[in-house]
């Protein structure tokens, strides 16, 4: 049976994890590789690194991080942030990332989706969509770019359809309304997005506990759930979340293997 995926997300600045985990003794809680190994051992199904490095002069730091992660972590991982051209995708994938995630650049240059899917396959092209409810219009969400700062006028569900028609293999959907509030995902948005496309949808924005993840996976029709702070602050471990979901009848990968 296909499992629902639980995906911790890290913000990375100049090759270092910021807002890193704060609850376990790690030699270096800012080291992406050490964190990745920790979450792999905890049972994470996939990892997402969001590169927030401001200066393009510092891009080499994220390249080193991707290569080091790929050398030591044997679960899939996605890299997003700063990917503006097919050459950026190529570099990340060749360094060992399994997928690249594009957001603002996909809106600015939608052909980037087509070109990436053609060159590398849809399976490694993730389109991230930041969406906000349109006030007074139920069932309408607008797409924002630049980390949620710039409105685009695009309808989120329409953009989801277009992105997948262009070749996106997965959508990472963040609700700007629920993000950061720890009160649950926007399950109405997730359901509208997931039902509009035939590719997997990863839910993001608002997880405060495993019950919210269960809702996103059932009511929201999401295929995977992403979260940052509840894992990084140790509110819940991946295993606790998975046990909760398993008890709720949601298929998750629980088995633990001996390290090889």
């Amino acid at each position: 049976m296909l499992m629902r995926r639980i995906i911790p997300c890290f913000d990375v600045d100049r090759g270092r994890v910021v807002k890193g985990i704060s609850f376990v003794e790690l030699r270096d809680a800012g080291d992406p590789v050490e964190l990745a190994k920790f979450y792999d051992a905890e049972g994470a199904d996939e990892l997402v690194f969001l590169d927030i490095t401001a200066s393009s002069d510092d891009r080499a730091t994220v390249y080193d991080m991707v290569a080091a992660t790929a050398d030591q972590v044997f679960i899939p991982f996605t890299v997003g942030g700063g990917i503006r051209a097919v050459t950026d995708m190529k570099i990340m994938l060749e360094l060992g990332a399994d997928k690249v995630s594009i957001n603002t650049s996909a809106i600015q240059t939608p052909d980037l989706i087509n070109e990436g899917a053609y060159r590398f396959g849809s399976q490694c092209i993730v389109v991230a969509i930041d969406a906000r409810r349109v006030p007074g219009q139920a069932g309408k969400w607008e797409v924002f770019t630049h980390g949620g700062r710039n409105p685009t006028g695009l309808d989120a569900v329409e953009w989801a359809r277009e992105a997948t028609a262009r070749g996106a293999g997965e959508l990472l959907v963040t609700s700007m309304d629920t993000d950061g509030h720890l009160k649950g995902y926007d399950n109405v948005l997730l359901r509208a997005m997931s039902d509009a496309v035939t590719v997997p949808v990863v839910a993001s924005g608002g997880a405060g506990g495993p019950e919210h993840m269960a809702e996103a996976l059932t009511e929201g029709h999401a295929d995977a759930v992403l979260a940052a702070s509840i894992f990084h602050f140790g509110t819940y471990s991946i295993r606790q979340v998975k046990e909760y979901l398993a008890n709720a009848g949601i298929p998750v990968r629980l088995e633990a293997a001996q390290p090889v």
Partner: peptide, 9 residues
């Protein structure tokens, strides 16, 4: 969903 993407038994 196609592709079949993720962990399966």
């Amino acid at each position: 969903k196609v592709p079949h993407m993720g962990w399966n038994t």
